[in-house]
Design a protein around this nucleic acid. Structure first.
Length: 257
DNA sequence: AACCCTTTCAACCGCCGCGCC
DNA sequence: GGGCGCGGCGGTTGAAAGGGT
C-alpha cells in the first residue's frame, strides 16, 4: 500500500495562481502565520494542495523577497557557494537574503551555467574544462582554506570537514549527521567547510552583522575573507533563521529573528 | 502579422528526513 | 523498531514571454 497523496487531487486547482488566490493566502498567513500547510488550504478557503500553498508563499508571496535581477556580487557568491555545497539550493539561498532556492536554482540553470562555460569552467566541478581528472595528490596540494562558522555555546569535539572534490558532485551528504557524534543534546553545530584555492580568512572570529543586505554585500565582495566585523552565526548564514532555530544567535537583525 | 525557436521561471512531482505514536 | 504524516528539498516540466525571420 503506497503512501497517501499529500492532498486530494480532485477539486484542486493547479497551475498559475490567480490574484484572488494570492490574496486569500496572504491574508490567511498574515492572520495566522505560517505552518500547518496541509490544513491551511481548507482554512484559508483555497482549492489548492498544501504543498502548492507553501511553495507559492515561499517563492513568491513572502514579503521579504528581493525582486529583480541578480547583482554581479550575488552571481559570484552563488558560484562560490555552489563550489562548496553543490546543488544544495536551500543552503545557498540561506546565504542570499531575499532570494529563494527555486529562484537561485533557475538562475543557475539559465545564467550561471552558461557564464561558467563561457569562461571555460565546468559548472559541475568548477574546474577548467580542459583540466584532466584530479588526482588525490593534486587535491592535497590545493591550498585548503577553512571557513569556520561557530555558534556560541558548546562545541562538538570533531569538526566536520568537507574538501573540494568530494563536495562538488554532491556525493557527500552535505554534513555529517548528528548521530555520528552521539546524542549530545547540547552541542551546537560547528561546521567547517573547506575550499581551495584559498581566500584569506582568519578562522576564529565572532562579530555581529548590521543587516542582511550588508551581510550579502560583504559576503559577495569578501567571501570567506571577511573582516573581523563580518562574521555571522552559522544559523543565520545557512538560513536557519527561517525556522526560528536560531536561538543562540546574537544578531539583532529584526527580519531574521 | 504570423510563425517558429529559444529562454525564463512558476509550479509540479516524487523522494527523503524527521518527529510522533 | 516500524509505520505514518508532514514539511522540505531538488529535479523537471510546460506555459508564457521574448526575439528573430
Amino acid at each position: 500500500m503506497g503512501r497517501s497523496p499529500c492532498c486530494e487531487k480532485a477539486h484542486m486547482n493547479k497551475g498559475a495562481w490567480t490574484k484572488e488566490e494570492d490574496q486569500l493566502l496572504v491574508d490567511y498567513i498574515r492572520k495566522h502565520g505560517e505552518g500547518c500547510w496541509r490544513s491551511l488550504p481548507r482554512a484559508a478557503g483555497l482549492q489548492r494542495c498544501g504543498k502548492s500553498c507553501r511553495l507559492r508563499w515561499m517563492n513568491y508571496l513572502r514579503p521579504d523577497l528581493k525582486r529583480g535581477n541578480f547583482t554581479e556580487e550575488e552571481d559570484e557568491l552563488i558560484i562560490k557557494l555552489h563550489s562548496l555545497l553543490g546543488n544544495k539550493w536551500s543552503l545557498i539561498a540561506g546565504r542570499l537574503p531575499g532570494r529563494t532556492d527555486n529562484e537561485i536554482k533557475n538562475y543557475w540553470n539559465t545564467h550561471i551555467k552558461r557564464k561558467l562555460l563561457s569562461r571555460g569552467i565546468d559548472p559541475n566541478s568548477h574546474r577548467l574544462i580542459n583540466e584532466s581528472v584530479v588526482s588525490p595528490s593534486s587535491l592535497q596540494n590545493d591550498v585548503v582554506e577553512t571557513i569556520h562558522l561557530d555558534f556560541s555555546g558548546p562545541v562538538k569535539p570533531e569538526p566536520v570537514r568537507e574538501e573540494i572534490g568530494m563536495v562538488n558532485n554532491c556525493e557527500s551528504s552535505g554534513t555529517t549527521s548528528e548521530k555520528d557524534y552521539g546524542n549530545e543534546e547540547d552541542w551546537v553545530l560547528n561546521l567547517e567547510l573547506s575550499v581551495g584555492p584559498s581566500y584569506r580568512y582568519e578562522s576564529t572570529r565572532k562579530v555581529s552583522v548590521v543587516d542582511s543586505a550588508e551581510s550579502t554585500r560583504r559576503w559577495g565582495s569578501e567571501l570567506f575573507g571577511a573582516h573581523e566585523s563580518d562574521a555571522v552565526c552559522l544559523c543565520c548564514r545557512i538560513g536557519l533563521f527561517r525556522n526560528e532555530s536560531c536561538r543562540n544567535c546574537r544578531v539583532s537583525d529584526v527580519r531574521t529573528h
